[in-house]
Simulated assay, not measured.
Amino acid sequence: MDTTTKPVTPDVWNTAELDLDAYLARVGQRREAPSAAALAALHEAHVRTIPFENIDPLLGRSPSLDLADITAKLVHRRRGGYCYEHNLLFAAVLERLGYDVNRQAARVQPDHPGPNTHMNLRVRVDGDDYLADVGFGASIMRPMPLYDGSELDQAGWPHRLTAEERGWRLHRLKDGEWNAEYAFDEAPQHPVDYEVFNHYVATHPRSPFTGRLVVMRLSDRVCRKLIGEHLVAEYADGTEEKSTVAPADLGATLRSLDLDLDPADLELVRERYTGQK
């Protein structure tokens, strides 16, 4: 028996199903060797290009977490999605490019607490660890160095990481105070874990994504959100603009948020939009 041969690790995440060239074209990036700078550029390009949105759960559909389906939706159909879709896609991209990636879970609003259903990533490159998260609504533009006290400006909003006894906590500075966004540890998750989380988030009546439309876009010093019927622009200086979007204006508003639905889905969303919570 040849004991020098290493066992083949099965590709449980099906990363071979990713159309990497199409993804890179979608976000306007080139293949580059793994580095902290390349990771930051790719992360930012993803957030700037692919919307955060909950169209499928709003319409009573559970988003598929099969990588081929995510690629078809977010890359080829140029749609968006929520955390599992974004971060499963991004994790596969990073692994195909040669990064060391750990898929994790986080508890949103840990001081309340919220559910432990968010997906984030730990990425190791150049000997350092980073928190990467392209699927947290419109919050994190660039990966954060993973060490206690790490601070990084995220498109105008300072964020901080603090170490806890059993993991980490991500904070956002607002009105002069650090508010906890989510808490997480580095326990690796399995595909079935996200299937369970996804079922709850996509179907439970208390989920924030089943009762009203949510679309979010982050750019420099402005975060634009369509929450229910309200279009909100939050600026890094603390000012805010808010307006009500009429059903007839929904298509144009979604396009302004980089989300161009096919006519059938737009009509379904418009019907659901008038009765949302």
Rank of each mutant, 00 (worst) to 15 (best):
P158E: 05
P263W: 00
A180T: 10
L268G: 06
V196T: 05
P247H: 12
Q154Y: 02
Q189N: 12
S64I: 08
G228W: 03
S62F: 08
D133H: 09
H190N: 13
A45E: 02
A132M: 09
D129Y: 02
R26T: 13
E164W: 11
L121S: 03
A246Y: 07
D153P: 01
V245F: 11
S207C: 09
D148A: 13
M144T: 14
L250I: 10
R124S: 05
L170T: 08
C223I: 10
A72T: 12
V215L: 03
T239I: 03
L152G: 14
V108D: 04
L20R: 14
G176W: 04
R270G: 06
D258Q: 11
P63C: 06
M119L: 15
P110N: 08
A72G: 13
L42P: 01
V192N: 15
T117N: 11
P205K: 02
A138Q: 00
E151K: 06
P247Y: 14
T9D: 15
T49E: 05
R26H: 13
A91T: 10
D258H: 11
L88R: 07
R172C: 12
L213H: 01
T253S: 12
T210Y: 10
R122P: 00
A252N: 11
V214P: 03
L161I: 13
S207W: 10
A25F: 11
Y182W: 15
A40M: 01
P63M: 03
R169H: 13
H86I: 00
G60I: 09
G251F: 10
L42T: 08
V134Y: 02
L97D: 09
E44P: 01
V192L: 15
Y99G: 05
S243D: 08
A233L: 08
L59I: 12
S256Q: 08
H204A: 07
R224Q: 15
V214E: 03
R122D: 03
Q29D: 05
E44T: 06
A36F: 02
R31C: 10
I227R: 05
T162H: 14
A38C: 00
D11E: 08
Y23H: 11
L259M: 03
D237N: 09
A106F: 02
L18D: 06
H46F: 07
Y84M: 14
Y84F: 15
H204V: 04
V269A: 00
L18C: 05
A183M: 10
A163Q: 09
M1I: 11
I140T: 15
S139P: 08
T210M: 07
L259V: 08
N87R: 03
T274S: 12
A36S: 02
V27C: 13
L257G: 00
A252D: 10
F136C: 06
D249W: 10
T162P: 14
S256R: 11
D185L: 03
E186W: 12
H190Y: 14
R206Q: 09
